[in-house]
């Protein structure tokens, strides 16, 4: 009888963990659909990039030091979010929250640079309504920036939850998903860096 009870408890624990793993799989599927969203925006950009209507072209408005800094900041934050999950698997709450703070600070720096980049463009007359190229550019890069901003708010919420509940099966799963999300945003940025910025200044 006792054996049956412990067996049952064990089963219950497994079910709980299995359920959390299923949620991580669900999040992977969300990321794939988000890829498709970005694919439509990339396709639009690639088709419209030459339609500048006499307005500024990429070469004139993209600042190399700016987008290179954005690239390395986001890449580093992807790395530090990985270090956060490593700390989590070691049961190190302080390390986990510390690396999340570093990641969020880098994310904030990225968003700050992007906002100043956009503001400079608008000041030079390169607004979203100037040409089809700029409409596609601001929509594509802006959608990525919006994703990073949402990720920042989510990350702050998770830090509060970690402070309150510590590392549990549930908070573990939440950190796993936000870390996947953050790596995904860096992956999208690799293609923005290549297709928009590098090909733009070519």
């Amino acid at each position: 009888m006792e054996h049956a009870v412990t067996h049952h408890a064990h089963d219950h624990h497994d079910h709980h963990e299995e359920h959390e793993q299923l949620k991580v799989l669900g999040f992977w599927i969300f990321l794939v659909t988000d890829c498709i969203l970005f694919a439509t925006l990339f396709a639009t950009y690639v088709v419209l990039r030459t339609h500048t209507d006499g307005g500024p072209i990429g070469k004139e408005i993209f600042e190399v030091p700016g987008f290179v800094a954005e690239t390395f900041i986001l890449l580093t934050s992807s790395f530090t979010s990985g270090l956060a999950t490593l700390a989590m698997h070691k049961g190190n709450v302080k390390g986990l929250i510390g690396w999340l703070i570093v990641t969020a600070a880098l994310g904030l720096g990225f968003i700050g640079l992007e906002i100043s980049e956009f503001a400079n463009m608008v000041q030079e007359g390169a607004t979203i309504s100037r040409s089809a190229f700029l409409s596609a550019f601001f929509t594509l890069v802006g959608t990525h920036g919006l994703h990073v901003s949402v990720g920042l708010l989510w990350m702050i919420g998770l830090m509060v939850q970690l402070g309150r509940y510590g590392i549990t099966t549930v908070t573990k799963r939440k950190i796993t998903t936000i870390s996947l999300y953050w790596h995904f945003l860096d992956v999208v940025w690799i293609f923005l860096f290549t297709v928009v910025y590098l090909m733009g200044v070519m």
Binding site: L25, W28, V32, C35, I36, A39, A43, V46
Partner: peptide, 25 residues
């Protein structure tokens, strides 16, 4: 590996949308 299967399907769709748009346009 359902996540890998979903990812492969996603890559096929992404490629079709981007390459297809470039080709038709």
């Amino acid at each position: 590996k359902y996540n890998v299967m979903a990812l492969i399907l996603g890559i096929v769709i992404v490629f079709t949308i981007v390459a297809g748009s470039m080709w038709i346009m």
